[in-house]
Computed example of a mutant assay.
Amino acid sequence: MRTSKFRARVVLWWGIGLLLVGVLVELFLPPLSFGIMAVGSTGTQVDQGLLALLDSALRVAASLLTPVGTALLGAGVVMAYLERRDTVVPEPTEASLPE
């Protein structure tokens, strides 16, 4: 059986981290972007364009981080279960012993 370089614990923690970052970005992005857009010093067209680009990029990242984190979290749980199942050696029964 081939072993993977990905370990269940690493995948699980990456999933938790991405999930939390995605949720935090989703929670704090609207007030932050509204506060930045409402500042009077951002009156030029270039500044508004850059802020709109930054806002769009953060919204795309936020919408991708949460599902990817959830998928990695689930994959980490499955990997941990499969690793634990493969390491458990069943005790031999009388029917499985050679004669």
Rank of each mutant, 00 (worst) to 15 (best):
L72V: 03
G40Q: 14
T3Y: 01
E26Q: 12
K5F: 15
V39M: 09
G74D: 05
A38Y: 04
A71S: 12
R59E: 04
D86A: 06
E99C: 01
Q48E: 00
T44P: 01
G15P: 07
V39D: 03
G35A: 02
P98R: 10
E26P: 01
L27Y: 04
V77P: 03
G35Y: 02
I36D: 05
P90M: 02
G76Q: 05
L72F: 08
R2A: 12
T87H: 06
I36N: 00
L19F: 15
A75F: 07
L24N: 05
S63L: 09
V77T: 05
Y81E: 04
D86P: 04
V89C: 01
E83H: 06
V25F: 13
A62P: 06
L64F: 02
G76N: 07
G22N: 00
Y81P: 04
L32G: 08
T44Y: 08
A52K: 12
R59L: 01
T44G: 07
R2T: 10
V21Q: 12
M37V: 02
L24V: 13
V78F: 04
L54D: 11
I16P: 02
L54Y: 11
V88Y: 11
S33L: 11
E26L: 09
T93L: 02
A80D: 02
T3K: 13
V23M: 12
Q45M: 12
G49N: 11
F28Q: 09
P31R: 00
V21A: 15
Y81R: 11
P30K: 05
T44N: 08
R85N: 07
I36F: 04
L72D: 01
T66L: 10
V21P: 02
V77R: 07
F34I: 11
A80Y: 05
L65Y: 11
V25G: 13
P92C: 01
A71D: 08
T42D: 09
L18Q: 14
L20R: 06
T44S: 13
S4V: 11
K5P: 15
E94Y: 06
L19A: 14
L32D: 03
L27A: 13
L58T: 01
L32C: 07
A52F: 15
A71E: 02
P67F: 13
V60W: 07
V89F: 01
V10F: 10
S96Q: 00
F6L: 15
G76F: 06
F28Y: 13
T93A: 05
G74Y: 08
R7Y: 15
A8E: 10
Q45D: 12
L73H: 06
L65A: 13
L53R: 14
G76C: 03
V10G: 01
V21W: 12
A62K: 01
K5W: 14
S56R: 14
T70Q: 15
A52G: 11
I36P: 00
A75I: 07
V60I: 12
L65K: 05
S41I: 10
V11G: 06
A95D: 00
P90K: 08
G40V: 11
M37A: 14
G74M: 14
P67D: 06
G69Y: 06
V60E: 02
E83C: 05
T44F: 04
T70Y: 15
A80T: 00
V89G: 05
L64S: 00
A62C: 04
E99Q: 04
T44L: 03
R84E: 09
L82Q: 05
G35E: 06
T93K: 09
